[in-house]
Design a protein around this nucleic acid. Structure first.
Length: 473
DNA sequence: TCCACTCACACATTTGAATAGG
DNA sequence: ACCTATTCAAATGTGTGAGTGG
């Protein structure tokens, strides 16, 4: 499916809901559901687009059934969320946020190489929203480079006071990305917002990896896990320099081979090539029984599940958007901005991007946190950032290094454990129902422009996952 | 006995202050 | 005085595997 089909198949979907001064408009496209919220002048909001920058890496994980380690002190996500946006008003301020919503109301267990439903989900933990530390920032700031959410952390500690996003282990979640036009966090409630999610970013929260393939994939791709690679775990640091460079080279070559434009002809998206088939992962050909025993094998019909009729329909203002390939135009070359070139292994996703973007200007990508900010002159270091220990619904990370940044007062939590999963409709399936997004085998043919044929809009359910503390407004 | 979970560990990268040089 | 590049120690991020507790 091409983006033009998306564009032309927009149907004014359902309803208008007036909530105080907030106007919510829900659209549904074929595969994209969008809700615009905000004042009547929010026309431009409809043009906001978001792309997942490292979607190929995400898809690699997704095909195996992504697992994210959660720990008490908090654990980063890997792959981490790296998004790019376009269509913002250059000089209007925006807040970028992320939250996690349950994919369904089940608890899972890993049994004999696949995920199975282990019962009803536990009561929903405190719902928190991660706010990008640059927020608020003008639209041109967000659009000039990818937005890295590297520092987002997940925890299973319901008493967490560091503002990490709290999740339950053995439950499935889907990250959502929100862009809100607002001059500060206080006015976010009033701002025009749009929400995006990417099917390939859903994951199962775990305290220890269950699927060894996920473990291997993480070790292969995550620079911090380098010590566990094949050369032997806990390799001595003896010739760390040469050893590291050799590793990097091998990894770099491997990635370049894996992700070439030829392999992914529709990445980036090219409308004139929309009929091309992308390689389909031949899961049957993977060999061993274990190999083709994808955690998704137990999925029901892709039309069921998360966003299906039986599943929850939580994302009132959500756009299920095609991956990065859909919006190559705002992937800008930043090479001049990056004096330091990351070693290949340290920015695998970047390499991945570069490799299939070879027809574009060279792009040297390093994490935003590292390159987009001038040295901090004043500001709030971690030690100066007061912990959000009032059960915040908004996770406020360390201030941006580029500017004193917003240091808002804590947003008092609206969430409560009252948000139990009993609120979510749907019965317990006999087995893992899997996500609503397509089964990998179905996903593959539309690799670059996935088709999501389910409705996402439901304002009522949106309120069950508050981005902010309504109680403080 | 099983399973989810915690924690200390070794190893790697990242960060940021200090320093040197232009 | 200012800027940039380099160095290096500390901080931080990884998965592992043994141990714990329900």
């Amino acid at each position: 499916m091409s983006i033009s089909r998306y564009a032309t198949s927009v149907l004014l979907h359902s309803f208008w809901v007036v909530d105080q001064s907030l106007l919510l408009v829900s659209f549904q496209t074929e595969g994209i559901t969008s809700t615009m919220a905000g004042p009547a002048d929010s026309y431009h909001q409809g043009n906001i687009r978001m792309a997942l920058e490292n979607s190929d890496l995400w898809k690699s994980f997704h095909e195996l059934g992504t697992e994210m380690i959660i720990t008490k002190p908090g654990r980063r996500m890997f792959p981490h969320c790296l998004i790019s946006v376009s269509g913002l008003v250059p000089y209007a301020n925006y807040v970028v946020m992320v939250d996690m919503v349950p994919v369904d109301n089940f608890r899972y267990k890993w049994n004999k190489g696949q995920w199975e439903v282990a019962g009803k989900a536990e009561p929903q933990p405190p719902c928190r929203t991660y706010v990008h530390p640059d927020s608020p920032a003008p639209g041109n700031h967000w659009m000039k480079q990818s937005i890295s959410l590297l520092k987002l952390k997940l925890t299973n500690n319901t008493l967490d006071q560091h503002g990490h996003i709290i999740l339950h282990s053995m439950h499935r979640y889907q990250p959502r990305f929100h862009i809100v036009q607002a001059d500060d966090l206080y006015s976010v409630r009033w701002g025009a917002f749009q929400t995006f999610s990417f099917t390939e970013t859903s994951f199962t929260a775990v305290t220890a990896y269950q699927n060894t393939k996920i473990t291997k994939l993480k070790i292969d791709h995550n620079p911090f896990a380098k010590g566990f690679r094949e050369e032997g775990t806990h390799a001595k640091r003896g010739d760390s320099q040469g050893h590291t460079q050799a590793n990097n080279l091998v990894l770099y070559i491997r990635v370049m081979v894996t992700f070439t434009p030829a392999d992914y002809p529709r990445l980036p998206y090219d409308p004139q090539r929309e009929d091309e088939e992308v390689p389909v992962v031949d899961k049957q050909g993977l060999g061993s029984q274990d190999d083709h025993m994808s955690p998704w094998d137990m999925e029901q019909d892709p039309t069921q599940g998360l966003h299906g009729d039986a599943g929850m329909d939580f994302s009132s203002s959500e756009q299920m958007v095609p991956g990065q390939a859909s919006y190559p135009s705002f992937r800008v070359s930043r090479s001049q901005d990056f004096p330091r070139l990351q070693s290949p292994s340290s920015s695998e996703a970047s390499i991945e991007r570069r490799s299939y973007e070879s027809q574009f200007a060279d792009v040297a990508t390093v994490p935003d946190e590292e390159v987009t900010r001038p040295p901090m002159t004043t500001g709030m270091g971690p030690s100066q950032c007061p912990p959000l220990d009032y059960s915040p619904s908004t996770s406020l990370p360390t201030a941006s290094k580029s500017k004193p940044s917003l240091r808002p007062h804590p947003v008092y939590g609206h969430y409560s454990t009252e948000h139990t999963l009993a609120q979510w409709p749907g019965g317990v399936p006999a087995q893992y129902s899997g996500p609503a997004y397509p089964h990998p085998q179905h996903l593959a043919p539309e690799h670059s422009v996935p088709h999501y044929g389910y409705h996402h809009g439901n304002v009522a359910e949106w309120s069950q996952y508050p981005l902010f503390s309504y109680s403080c407004w």
